[in-house]
Write a protein that binds this DNA or RNA. Structure first.
Lengths: 252, 252
DNA sequence: CGACTTGTTGATGTACATCAAGGTACGTGG
DNA sequence: CCACGTACCTTGATGTACATCAACAAGTCG
């Protein structure tokens, strides 16, 4: 990992954790909060473009995103790259390296990030003593699976235009959920190369597809800021089904 | 669900569960075995082609595959279908409907199947009282995520030929792992339409691609039996990386 | 009664025209 | 300088249409 050192003073002690304020998450029981405080071993500042986890390697730490954007990806030996999903505040990184021997994908920062760090050995203790938290971990993993499934449908069966519309909506929904897109305009910190690799398209074709959406006045993409001018049109193109139900962690 | 009733006499009481014999799984502790016996509410026989779970619906049950093959899939409103993954003995079905409000994909049987049935309410008790089993559930979910990630890379970035080679190897590995492919020859119960929908290709192009592999004497596909004549060639085409490490559930 | 046609169905094979997406090249612009 | 835009040509994948083949059921005849 090529990133800066763990700070000595925590920006966010667990009591003031910015993640728990988000309404997507359930509140902690007091004893869970106590445990999480012992679970957290520090905070990590990561630079934009830094590699946080690498496919095929193991990691002694687990991370929760506190601030910033990242993306998960896999590569073929000849350099072709596929983005699997994006990570935003509240997302969990490195679970696979804890459950298996190694990561099955890599993770790279899109912006400067602040990560909450947990040592992987304590994961087992979490399962043993805090079933509610274990349930959260499982929930997070399963949500990830859900998103990958949606992506698979998109890349396997949607046309370039439909796929692009779907991805933009998806990014918008996720950004909204963590308060990073108050309106229909937001700034996903992505280049068209990132979009292309997420969509399974070439960069040229991605550009042409974005232009088609711009020409139809459905989106506007200028200076790294994406504006969705016509959500409904985008949804229609993407065959978007409003089943965001179930994205919020239930209290059992 | 259009399938036959739960049998009164169990074919496999937990002590003789066929799944646990497979070396991919860890042995149970005696008290875990006791609990699992109370967790299991019966067995379900499912006909070939039956729908086991439906996207967008909730399910009061969770299933473990004891015998047979199934596939998970998603569909677009206009009928385009994408297979996400296959389910073989040992796989868990319906977790999402337990964690979220509803299933995010459907599941259909490819052969007659025997399923082990659990009521979803008991899942929480499992997390509370049997962290080892909770860990297993998380592990299973995470492995699913891993496979979806591999598929996403395949469909997004591999060519039709590479993709097909990869899928055939994947199926072979999975069948071997549960003893359904003793040699390099096995019988995945699939039509070319299933393959096409798993690969994100048209059925015509799938056929042409299979023929290319047959012409090169790398595979043989006749009478529903697939024979892999040249594993090495297939691996080379698929850019297969031998990282099956970590597929076996560790004992922590 | 068994063996041999015939019809039906679902899966597979292949040819051809078409089109969506790719790749290279060379712009522009912050 | 790196990201974005766009023109031109190429190619991989699609869709339609139709032929083939195996499996099975029904009907017919020796």
């Amino acid at each position: 990992m090529n990133n800066s050192a763990v700070g000595s003073a925590l920006k966010y002690p667990c009591e003031r954790c910015p993640i728990r304020k988000l309404k997507v998450f359930r509140p902690f029981a007091p004893e869970e909060l106590e445990f999480v405080k012992t679970f957290k071993s520090g905070e990590l500042n990561v630079e934009s473009r830094a590699t946080i986890l690498t496919e095929g390697t193991s990691s002694t730490h687990l991370f929760t995103v506190l601030e910033g954007w990242a993306f998960r990806y896999k590569m073929l030996p000849d350099g072709r790259r596929q983005l699997l999903n994006f990570a935003l505040p509240g997302d969990f990184l490195g679970l696979q390296a804890s459950l298996f021997k190694e990561m099955s994908h890599s993770v790279e920062a899109l912006t400067p990030m602040l990560l909450c760090v947990f040592p992987r050995e304590r994961l087992w203790k979490l399962f043993e003593q805090y079933p509610g938290l274990a349930f959260d971990v499982t929930w997070l993993g399963s949500r990830e699976e859900q998103i990958l499934g949606e992506n698979l449908l998109s890349i396997g069966r949607r046309t370039a235009l439909e796929r692009t519309a779907f991805l933009l909506l998806h990014l918008h929904e996720r950004a909204k959920a963590v308060g990073l897109a108050p309106a229909d305009s937001f700034s996903p910190p992505l280049t068209q190369q990132h979009l292309a690799d997420a969509l399974g398209l070439s960069i040229v074709h991605t550009n042409k597809t974005l232009k088609r959406l711009s020409d139809r006045k459905i989106i506007r993409w200028k200076n790294r800021e994406l504006e969705i001018l016509d959500v409904e049109a985008l949804r229609e193109i993407a065959w978007w089904e409003d089943d965001e139900a179930g994205r919020v962690r239930p209290l059992i």
